[in-house]
């Protein structure tokens, strides 16, 4: 029973949501036969219900975060100062947001109003940290590209050559290097080759991946609807 009930609910809701994708839409006045109105209602409201569930689950997440970091600080486990910083940040920002410190008073006050401490925390701490982390991507892309483009195999050589052409073809240097190419051989210009690589072999590969994803999603959905998924308890 513990497994059967979630499976039945999953299958029922899953089939219902699939049917809504094929259901007719109600007219501008919201009218139509009852299944049409029912499909439309389900389509509009199920995502809202998911969000409501997610809000309750956030309490679980917050409790998990507090529990793990409080235990780490209390028992002075390795790297506990990081946990202390996490706890202070979590509780501090939560208090600032819930009490709406610094902003217009009352329930109608927005935490994003000018002068609100929450907004100051966002602008002065969160945004710079975000930008710092995002900037790391430039270095990470370089080191990852270095590993990927090493000439270790014929495939890596093709990858390197393609990347080199696309990179040069999208820079002024590529245009300058292609200037001596006569108009009759314009397809050999680096910018033209770059466009061809992106719009023919790359696009073909992307579409193959997308077709595969569609097939995979359909198979996974059928497995779940048949009660053979992992999340509804059908796997383990």
């Amino acid at each position: 029973m513990k497994r059967l009930v979630p499976r039945v609910i999953t299958s029922f809701v899953g089939i219902l949501l699939i049917l809504t994708a094929f259901g007719a839409r109600p007219g501008p006045d919201g009218g139509g036969v009852w299944p049409v109105r029912a499909f439309d209602y389900v389509d509009r409201n199920f995502s809202v219900w998911f969000n409501i569930l997610a809000v309750f689950a956030f309490i679980l997440g917050g409790a998990s975060l507090l529990k793990s970091h409080v235990a780490k600080v209390a028992h002075r486990r390795p790297d506990w100062p990081y946990s202390a910083v996490t706890l202070v940040s979590f509780v501090g920002v939560l208090a600032i947001g819930m009490l709406k410190l610094g902003g217009p008073p009352g329930l109608q006050g927005e935490v994003t109003d000018p002068g609100a401490w929450f907004q100051i925390v966002f602008d002065a701490i969160y945004d710079p940290l975000l930008a710092t982390l995002y900037a790391l991507l430039a270095f990470f892309i370089t080191s990852a590209a270095y590993r990927a483009f090493r000439l270790r195999s014929p495939q890596a050589a093709i990858l390197l050559a393609s990347a080199f052409i696309v990179l040069l073809g999208r820079t002024p240097l590529g245009t300058w290097l292609s200037d001596p190419v006569p108009p009759s051989l314009g397809f050999l210009r680096l910018d033209a080759l770059s466009v061809w690589i992106m719009s023919v072999p790359n696009l073909a590969g992307q579409r193959a991946v997308l077709i595969g994803i569609a097939v995979g999603v359909t198979a996974l959905t059928l497995r779940i609807l048949a009660g053979r998924g992992e999340v509804d308890g059908g796997g383990a």
């Binding site: 997308l210 595969g212 994803i213």
Partner: peptide, 28 residues
């Protein structure tokens, strides 16, 4: 892509899931 969705079936060794994997190949 598709390999990612097939991985669970492959790892489980479950007959039904492996059968769905065969069906996936037919669709491809």
């Amino acid at each position: 892509g598709e390999e990612f969705f097939a991985a669970e079936a492959y790892l489980s060794g479950d007959r039904d899931k492996l059968g769905s994997l065969r069906g996936q190949d037919v669709v491809k």
